[in-house]
Amino acid sequence: MSTSTLSRPRPESLRKPGSRTRSNLSGWGFATPFLAFFLVFLVWPILYGFYMSLTGKSLTGANDSLLGFANYAEALADADMWRSLGNTLYFTVISTVPLVLVALVMAALLNIGVPAQWLWRLSYFAPYLLASTVVSLFFTWMYNPQLGLINEFLTGIGLPRVAWLNDPNVAMWAIVIATLWWTVGFNFLLYLAAMQNIPAQHYEAASLDGAGAWRQFFSITLPQLTPTTVMIVLLQILASLKIFDQVYQMTAGGPGGSTRPVVQYIFETGFTGYRLGYSAAISYIFFGLIVVISVMQFVITRRRSA
């Protein structure tokens, strides 16, 4: 991201001569309320969390001696941490693809010009307005092995029942399906907005050249959407990495730890297992991973746009 806009020269008319100090004062004055919250509830926790990760701090208040990097050493050798980190990454990969593709398809279908747009938008986007708990209740019920609608449908067309949330090989996919239903509407809206901003002239010119709708989509729409796609993929990856709610509510990380994401592991080591210091160390390993992924995305985007 370029910072050139920041240094844009201000119109002289707004700057009274000799008011440098006043500008400094009012600038920081306007910034102070935000800054106060920012420092107390974001910067301080980040710094203090790092300090915690170097201690044996416990939920019960016992044993908060300084340990150096022992927590990190322990975490790097902790098979459960790696497994949960692996689950988070696995979920991120298998959820991001459908969450972007289905959103694109939805937006493209609507953009062709179906009647009564609001109706479609409503049905695609409404789930996004639900709390995770509502989504989990809906889907736990639909996934019910004996009484669930989905298995009823499967047996109806002659397929075997699936133990959606109880089969370690299937559970993560069940979570992905629920997540897709829940949040795809958000990406869909972003795509739709971007598509409707593509100048009509592009299509008119193509039509005159005799390009069909299909070709127009691939030769005009998709390329025009590239910056949007990059942003959506980026945001989706960051959102998917934070996975916790649906899993905690639908499987509690089971069966046998097969869906437990790293955020749940942080929660459990810290609050169920009391070990806040150790849990903070895992948080920072996770944070490091997110920073690495963000930088990688940044580099890739830069290279592509260069």
Partner: peptide
């Protein structure tokens, strides 16, 4: 900064 990272501190 993802909020879940901050839950402990």
């Amino acid at each position: 900064i993802p909020p879940p990272v901050l839950i402990i501190p």
